[in-house]
């Protein structure tokens, strides 16, 4: 296959970026999308040019590193996969492909197609876990979990933290990402004791980091490579309001007692 590629190039976070056009020829349809970029990069090295910086590691759709915006869609045209799982047979011979980084205020570009997603780590650090220390946990069978709940928790936990949801959203909202973690832990009995604190801390951090609001456009769900459901956002909203009411009651309770 022969293809024309329009690729975003940007030397570093401060530099101004631009599109550059490249041509690749003789690409096998069985080649993966990232292997096609490898081939292009080899040819750039041959010419002593800087290869295109793009992120990837596992190349099997699980580490969440790869993050390309292809023809206007995060992870490209196919639903339910990451860009590293996409193969060139998905494209027509002779077509033009536009490749950009994720665009979001909270994900600054580092170089070319690479972005900084530390904001996601910060949201998790704010409370996306169950606060137990290592050692002497109760026997795993001490706490049965209904299968349907465990399955729903697993559906939410499948999030790979790639940020496609943010890139897809016109408001650059991180609600799908945050709600997936909130839902996973809220659905499990182990996660209930801190559920209220968790959702408040994570939402507050998300707002602080400049992610936008959710206006229910569903773009995130449509583009999520792991098909995380938007129902998690509804669950998170319920948790959030319950937590608010609960903490108001608690405050009322303490002042009453005092």
């Amino acid at each position: 296959m022969d293809l024309k590629l329009k690729i975003w190039r940007q030397e570093n976070a401060k530099a101004k970026g631009r599109f550059e056009t490249y041509h690749v020829t003789n690409i096998s349809p069985d080649c993966s999308f990232l292997e096609m970029l490898d081939i292009l990069n080899e040819s750039l090295v041959d010419k002593f040019e800087m290869p295109i910086a793009f992120e990837h590691d596992c190349r099997e759709g699980i580490c969440g590193t790869c993050s390309l915006y292809i023809n206007g869609r995060p992870h490209g045209p196919d639903a339910g996969i990451t860009v590293c799982q996409m193969h060139m047979r998905r494209f027509k011979d002779g077509s033009t492909i536009v490749i950009e980084p994720w665009r979001a205020r909270s994900f600054p570009v580092l170089r070319d197609l690479m972005i900084d997603r530390t904001a996601f780590d910060e949201i998790i650090q704010a409370g996306g876990y169950i606060s137990i220390a290592t050692g002497n946990a109760p026997d795993a069978h001490a706490l049965p979990v209904p299968k349907n709940k465990a399955d729903l928790a697993m559906d939410a936990a499948a999030c790979i933290g790639c940020g496609a949801c943010v890139a897809a959203c016109k408001n650059a909202s991180a609600m799908l990402f945050v709600s997936a973690k909130v839902a996973q832990l809220a659905l499990l009995p182990q996660g209930r004791p801190e559920a209220a604190r968790r959702v408040q801390a994570m939402v507050a951090k998300m707002d602080e980091l400049g992610f936008g609001n959710c206006t229910n456009t569903y773009a995130c769900e449509a583009e999520c490579p792991k098909e995380i459901k938007i129902t998690n956002i509804a669950l998170m909203n319920r948790e959030f309001f319950a937590a608010k009411v609960c903490s108001q009651k608690e405050m009322a309770g303490t002042s009453g007692a005092g």
């Binding site: 109760p138 706490l143 049965p144 979990v145 299968k147 465990a150 697993m154 182990q190």
Partner: peptide, 17 residues
């Protein structure tokens, strides 16, 4: 035990175990 306490969603049977 540790992983279950952390909320790792291991596969379960209908009985919840």
């Amino acid at each position: 035990d540790q992983c279950v306490a952390q909320g790792v969603p291991f596969a379960r049977e209908y009985g919840g175990l």
